[in-house]
């Protein structure tokens, strides 16, 4: 029938068009992820891989306290980074959306995104320079007479990782919140004030709930890549600031134990996915409870 021919011709043109990127993602993302998953059930002895499926890697991952500690620390650090980044970012997004003249908004967003596009490695290294024992912050504080001794709690530990990552992911948090705030119809704010709410209560009852989608997006966008970050813990984290990505790298490149690395990667991915889904689920539930 002609109608099905037409429908299928549109569908086939669409599928043909989407095929190159889809096949690319299939070959270079789906296949490798499947391979990682398969690897996690195999074992390696030096350079030979034993293809017998086993849960040995998972048993080891769960029994060896170091792995658990690294994963827990990664989650905690990523959580702290996310919290710090989003809390610090919200006022900026709010300021740009509500207090900056419309024709200057693009400029502000541009100013906020520029640092993000400069070499990540060098930026992280510069935080090391700023936070170090003889670093910019300590010499400045001592020079001003605010501190006697250099502060040591700010480098080579989890604090340094949090500060550095909060800086690195700032635009990722600001932009989604900004977009959500921009979408708010300004007459809603006026309506709330017209109905007798003061500015604080208007913010709490109208602006904040409407910004929730942006906050959720910001949280996920910061949390997911942060938990797998490698550079920052290595450069400024010290031995107690290392995270799961560093261990995955060690397993693959230093210990030549790809199956264990794959197992840790699968566990890390699972943890990320579970936390992300849990977060989305809690959010949905909260939104539903409100409405």
């Amino acid at each position: 029938m002609a109608m099905t021919r037409f429908a299928s011709s549109e569908a086939s043109r669409g599928l043909l068009m989407v095929a190159p990127p889809a096949l690319y993602a299939l070959l270079l993302l789906a296949v490798p992820l499947a391979a990682i998953f398969a690897f996690s059930f195999w074992t390696q002895d030096f350079l030979t891989i034993d293809f017998t499926p086993t849960l040995k890697n998972y048993r080891e991952a769960f029994s060896e306290p170091l792995y658990g500690e690294l994963i827990l620390r990664s989650v905690l650090i990523a959580g702290s980074v996310t919290l710090a980044t989003v809390v610090l970012a919200f006022p900026i997004a709010y300021f740009v959306s509500f207090h900056v003249a419309p024709n200057r908004k693009s400029l502000w967003i541009f100013l906020i995104t520029i640092p993000f596009w400069t070499s990540y490695l060098i930026r992280v290294f510069l935080w090391k320079v700023i936070l170090g024992y003889n670093g910019v912050l300590n010499t400045t504080l001592q020079g001003l007479g605010l501190t006697e001794e250099p502060l040591t709690f700010i480098l080579y530990n989890a604090n340094a990782v949090v500060i550095t990552l909060a800086h690195a992911f700032a635009p990722f948090a600001i932009l989604p919140i900004f977009v959500a705030l921009e979408k708010i119809d300004r007459s809603l704010i006026e309506a709330a004030q017209d109905l007798g709410e003061n500015r604080v209560m208007t913010f709490i009852r109208v602006t904040l709930p409407l910004a929730v989608p942006g906050i959720v997006a910001a949280t996920l966008i910061v949390f997911i890549p942060t938990i797998g970050d490698y550079v920052t813990p290595r450069l400024v984290g010290g031995p107690n600031g290392l995270m799961i990505a560093n261990m995955i790298q060690t397993q693959f490149l230093k210990l030549n134990n790809a199956p264990m690395g794959a197992t840790l990667a699968v566990i890390a991915m699972t943890v990320v996915t579970v936390i992300a889904l849990l977060f989305i689920w809690l959010n949905r539930k909260w939104l539903r409870a409100r409405s």
Partner: peptide, 23 residues
């Protein structure tokens, strides 16, 4: 399909890196 193509955006880079390396 489109969501899957966008997936690397929310995947830790270390995962992309090691999985490609393995293959």
């Amino acid at each position: 399909i489109l969501g899957f193509i966008m997936l690397p955006l929310v995947l830790p880079e270390i995962i992309v890196a090691v999985s490609l390396l393995v293959v």
